[in-house]
């Protein structure tokens, strides 16, 4: 096998490993991560083509932008140092084609052959001149309750872009006059918040607490309550002011969401440190909590589960807290 083929193959296999490890390093099973990513990609693609004018061209630009985002500047520097210009070009070309395959498949599905060809043709010079986006400067974003709710202001910064979308969609919900549009941002933010609670922390971050397991969980619950109330206050107020006749549903959503988050918190410590079991259980539990909005008796089952989960969580973290 010629050297450059072996080199390019190795580079691509390395990048694929990085991609798979991105999920496992973030506590998500790679299979679940890839399925969710493909699902979200399909939803986003369908939405773009259904809702936006000039969707094809926006889609091509997005594909090129995703290439830019996936070019780590340091890796390009190392590759240029280690490889000949010809091998560098071939490796990048193959990598960029692999990244754009989902976009090309969707364009093919939409019979947009012209756009697909344009995308492929653009990749060629781009692969040759590979450049990366400058790294943004780390500017400190403010977060509410900095002194107490540690997870919250960490999570708050993580979900900041989603939070902005949440607020924007609330405004759209008010302008459109359609109450149900307002529920979309609620579920979006709830899902993201729950995802943040799906990642187990380092054992030393539990070990640090000088208290027993019950007190530890109380502290975590308090932090969650602050986080939840702060995050969903705009949702609650918007419902109260603009849809007073449907405020009962808003309140029900708010309570169901809070219960779902409490469940997520206890599940996290019940199955600590397993991220995979935690995330799967949390997703199932979220489904039950949401279904309880339509069928309030389900709340009873959920509350029973929360009680059970709390006791298991307390028992599980006792060994770390040594109490």
């Amino acid at each position: 096998m010629p050297w450059f083929i072996a080199m390019v193959s190795y580079y691509i296999s390395l990048r694929l490993k990085q991609f798979v490890r991105f999920f496992s390093f973030n506590g998500i099973h790679p299979l679940i991560g890839i399925v969710v990513l493909l699902f979200l990609f399909t939803i986003a693609s369908v939405t773009i083509f259904q809702k936006l004018p000039y969707a094809v061209w926006i889609y091509v630009v997005l594909a090129l932008f995703s290439l830019l985002e996936l070019q780590p500047a340091k890796m390009n520097v190392i590759l240029r140092q280690q490889l000949t210009a010809d091998t560098f070009f071939k490796a990048k070309l193959l990598e960029n084609i692999l990244v754009t395959i989902p976009f090309l498949v969707f364009l093919g599905y939409k019979m947009e052959w012209g756009a697909a060809t344009l995308l492929l043709v653009t990749i060629v010079p781009y692969s040759y001149y590979s450049f990366s986006l400058p790294k943004p400067k780390l500017s400190v974003l403010p977060s509410p309750f900095p002194a107490y709710a540690f997870e919250y202001h960490n999570m708050f910064r993580m979900v900041m872009p989603v939070y902005a979308i949440h607020l924007l969609l609330l405004i759209v919900g008010v302008i459109s006059g359609n109450f149900y549009v307002m529920l979309v941002p609620f579920f979006l933010l709830l899902f993201v918040m729950q995802t943040a609670y799906g990642l187990p922390e380092e054992a030393s971050y539990i070990w640090l607490y000088r208290c027993n397991a019950a007190r530890f969980l109380q502290k975590k619950m308090l932090a969650l309550l602050i986080a939840y109330a702060g995050s969903f206050l705009p949702f609650l107020l918007t419902g109260l002011v603009f849809y007073p006749s449907s405020f009962g549903i808003v309140l029900l959503c708010f309570i169901a969401g809070l219960i779902a988050m409490l469940g997520a918190l206890f599940i996290k410590y019940q199955f600590y440190p397993s991220a995979l079991v935690t995330q799967i259980t949390q997703i199932i539990f979220l489904g039950f909590a949401v279904s309880a909005i339509a069928s309030p008796p389900v709340f009873i089952i959920i509350l029973l589960f929360i009680g059970f989960s709390y006791l298991r969580a307390k028992r599980n973290i006792k060994s770390i807290l040594q109490c």
């Binding site: 400190v140 974003l141 900095p146 002194a147 107490y148 540690f150 202001h153 960490n154 910064r157 993580m158 922390e201 380092e202 030393s204 971050y205 640090l208 607490y209 000088r210 208290c211 502290k219």
Partner: peptide, 26 residues
């Protein structure tokens, strides 16, 4: 305890990390 490779939550300020430890240790 100062571990050999201390772990820090991402997107956290130094002061917030210390405030967290202060609360955790009561």
């Amino acid at each position: 305890y100062l571990p050999t490779e201390p772990y820090f939550f991402p997107r956290i300020k130094g002061s917030e990390y210390l405030a967290f430890i202060q609360h955790a240790k009561n």
